[in-house]
Simulated scan of single mutants.
Amino acid sequence: MSLINLDLRHVRTGVHLTRAELADSAYEALCARTARRQREAKASLEHRGVAPRVQIGSLYVAPRIAKHFQHSDSVGGVL
């Protein structure tokens, strides 16, 4: 879990946060929640044995097949 400094001025001093600060806080919370959900979903797939596919040409293949291919920047031959 990442630690983020929270602005607690409004709790101790009665100073209210601006609308921009509230919007930034809500956006950061959304980003953190989305990242956490993506990590959990990826871990769930890995636990079930579902591996991501690698794109080779116009097809997606399993990583065990993709490791036998070498990618180069040139098209149609060796430089």
Rank of each mutant, 00 (worst) to 15 (best):
M1C: 08
M1I: 02
M1R: 08
L3V: 10
L3N: 09
I4N: 12
N5S: 14
N5A: 15
N5E: 15
L6E: 13
R9F: 00
V11I: 05
R12S: 09
T13H: 04
T13Q: 10
G14M: 03
V15C: 03
L17T: 03
T18M: 00
T18C: 02
R19D: 09
E21V: 05
L22G: 00
A23N: 09
A23T: 00
D24R: 06
S25A: 11
S25Q: 15
A26H: 07
Y27P: 00
Y27I: 00
E28G: 11
E28I: 12
A29M: 15
A29K: 13
A29P: 10
L30K: 01
L30T: 05
L30I: 07
T34P: 08
T34W: 14
A35V: 07
R37H: 03
Q38S: 09
Q38N: 15
Q38D: 12
E40N: 08
A43P: 05
E46Q: 06
R48D: 06
G49Y: 03
V50Q: 15
A51I: 10
P52R: 12
R53I: 07
I56P: 02
I56F: 03
G57W: 04
G57P: 05
L59N: 01
Y60D: 06
V61E: 05
A62W: 13
R64V: 10
H68P: 11
F69I: 01
S72L: 10
S74M: 06
G76K: 09
